[in-house]
Amino acid sequence: MRLVEAVLNGDRLALARLLTQVEQGTPAGLKALDMLFQHTGKAYLIGVTGSPGSGKSSLVNRLVYALRHPIGDASPKRVAVIAVDPSSPFSGGALLGDRVRMRDLAGDAGVFIRSMASRGNLGGLARATVSSAQVLDAAGFEVILIETVGAGQAEVDIARLADTILVVGTPGMGDEIQAIKAGILEIADILVINKADQPGVEEAEQFLRMMVETALTQKDTDDEGKRWSPPIVRTIALRGEGVQNLLDVIQQHAAHLENSGQSQERVRHRLEYDLINRVQERLLARWWGEVAEAAFREMLERIYRREISPCQAAEQLVEVTNQL
């Protein structure tokens, strides 16, 4: 397949077009994914999540810039960004504005930024985000940053995709810190307090420290070597302050995963999650192909009339296709 070869040879237009195919789930896109899979597994995936307006895009902008302009003799990494924004549930359209904050990265051939609409998927990512990350991985990007939609408590899919997860909050907004407290704090590998020049940063850090020490105990294991308490890092993304330190902490986390054997574990989990998703997708597609729409509508009416429970109805609808 020409598109696959071109992508492996670093052709950016081919890469962009393949990402579209993959996002649409076309036969060509799926075929390409199969062919590219053996080239994946090399990239380091960093997830960036947190409440809307916390400065995720600005932070990604700075992190990528720092990776492209390393201090000392380190060679710059090739970096890709996937920025996910929500689709409108009404029109199905989307306004993808993360690039506005990433203008420092323009004109750098070592950077590739792709905006994705969530297309109705819950969980903070788009359905095709996993596949898109695989394509970018195969295309030779060494670091892939994935920015989720502005997330509250439930958008934790990124936990199953990334190696290191940054949860970004801001000071001065007690409610906002509250809003990110439950599920999303538990997935954090590193907690970032962005806009750290704003008042309330001490309180925010204290609060987060308390959360780390109490709510996150479930993440602890008996295995000393695997234990990782999420560090709290202050940044001012607009001015680039604290960004180098954040990169250092990310590297420490990467080293911790490596030394404790957890990086293998994470990869296994990621693949397992991906497999389950693809099985679900296939089963549903097959079922939808086989069930008669009229039968489905009829069942819906019967539920509406309270003649049958949704549970029984589902059971019967699935049985119909089993008999085929």
């Binding site: 009404f90 989307a94 306004l95 323009a106 004109g107 905006s115």
Partner: peptide, 23 residues
């Protein structure tokens, strides 16, 4: 255009033609 069901990538102010073409 979003309300018409399209996915719109907005890039903001003061873009050079090169930046626009690359995006």
């Amino acid at each position: 255009l979003r309300d018409a069901g399209m996915e719109v990538i907005y890039t903001g102010l003061r873009q050079t033609p090169e930046m626009i073409a690359e995006a």
